[in-house]
Design a protein around this nucleic acid. Sequence first.
DNA 1: CTTGGAAAGAAAATAGATTTTAATTTGACC
DNA 2: GGTCAAATTAAAATCTATTTTCTTTCCAAG
Lengths: 233, 233
Amino acid sequence: MPRDLPGASLTQTAYERLRADLLACRLRPGERLRIADLCAALGVSLSAVREALSRLTAEGLVVAEPQRGFRAAPISVADLRDLTAARIEIETLCLRRAIASGDVGWEERLVAAHHRLSRTSARDPADPDRVAEPWAEAHGAYHEALVAGCGSPWLLRLRAILYAQSERYRRLSLPLARTERDLAREHREIMDATLARDADRAAALLTAHLQLTSAILLDAEESAEMPALAAGR
Amino acid sequence: MPRDLPGASLTQTAYERLRADLLACRLRPGERLRIADLCAALGVSLSAVREALSRLTAEGLVVAEPQRGFRAAPISVADLRDLTAARIEIETLCLRRAIASGDVGWEERLVAAHHRLSRTSARDPADPDRVAEPWAEAHGAYHEALVAGCGSPWLLRLRAILYAQSERYRRLSLPLARTERDLAREHREIMDATLARDADRAAALLTAHLQLTSAILLDAEESAEMPALAAGR
DNA sequence: CTTGGAAAGAAAATAGATTTTAATTTGACC
DNA sequence: GGTCAAATTAAAATCTATTTTCTTTCCAAG
């Protein structure tokens, strides 16, 4: 009876574990996902895995090729460019709305999330070339808290889709950062401008923040040091 | 061997039929979806239906309540308000980009889609209170063609999610239109401004177009003529 | 007459078996 | 020696059976 958490269905846990593996690139972009293998690895049955993969397909983290199975969604330079541009649009839109209409509860959550992020180290102590799982979580919570005050469930939902997509690129980006980047400062400045209700400045800082992560990967790709982006298929 | 179309898997056809039924409100918002019933109706087995429902869950057309099955996603006044606002943001964003960078092929497709829509009648000849299926299809193709030139797969994907959501509200809106609305004129004017590359005017017209559909439903709800919006649950 | 609890029934979740489809390899014919 | 086709194998897609979970009803106690 491999019920990990009480209240969670087997399919749900399979879904969550697969999703985490995809976001962390433990299942690499473009990689073929053999259902039987996943069953064995997760200790659940075909049905559960198929259902989880179906949901991930609709989310865009997995692609299904009819009659030929599933594979982890590929990544590419073009996709990263497009994704970054789309994210900047949606994230700044949400941020401006949050700044315009966010309440004290929102500010409170933001300060809390930022504090937690600032006290979490980005690199895995065991393997300094990997992103530490607690940091990834704190980082996600910070960016979510930043825009949570926007008041639009639909915009936040779209934002979450794009955030999840870029998570995979972010994991590949960290080990490539040649010039050590002052992420903590970026996060603090964005928060400060936001709490000061300076929408233009906050949006500009957030745009630069998103752009920089993308640029690190694109630079690495250009200088041919990084075969990762070609791994799709 | 209930394979409807060649090349399409059983799950795929089940998914498409369920999706069409949800968009057309033949499966009403908030309605409980008993898997066994759907199996019988679609002539396929549990697995296929579950897989289809999982995908629809990720799309937001179905909600899953763990251990208690699935139901058609509910609708509400608050959701319609939020959805409309989000759609206006995304659709106008895509439209402005398309106007800025769309090529002749895009213009060509738009003119073609508009022509088809203009020659299709909106009301079902059999039941004038229902939206005719060919019109729904042509309408969707027109709005897709309008923004297709935007060049961003991700923005278009987000747009498609929101369009599908509002499809359900649109189906409920038509029979309520008290003052007969000149939809054909609205569609033509939007296209004309777009082809004239007048971004501000096109965006304003599109905004008014989306706003009006929403307003018709909200008015009807307010004057208590419409129990449909309360049907969620 | 109301309320709490237990048992029976219904429905969802999961597992495992079966069928279908695609890829690969081998053999025969050109 | 090369190419096409048939057979074999592996994997995905589908179906059926089983288990688990929830809901409803009925009975007893307060």
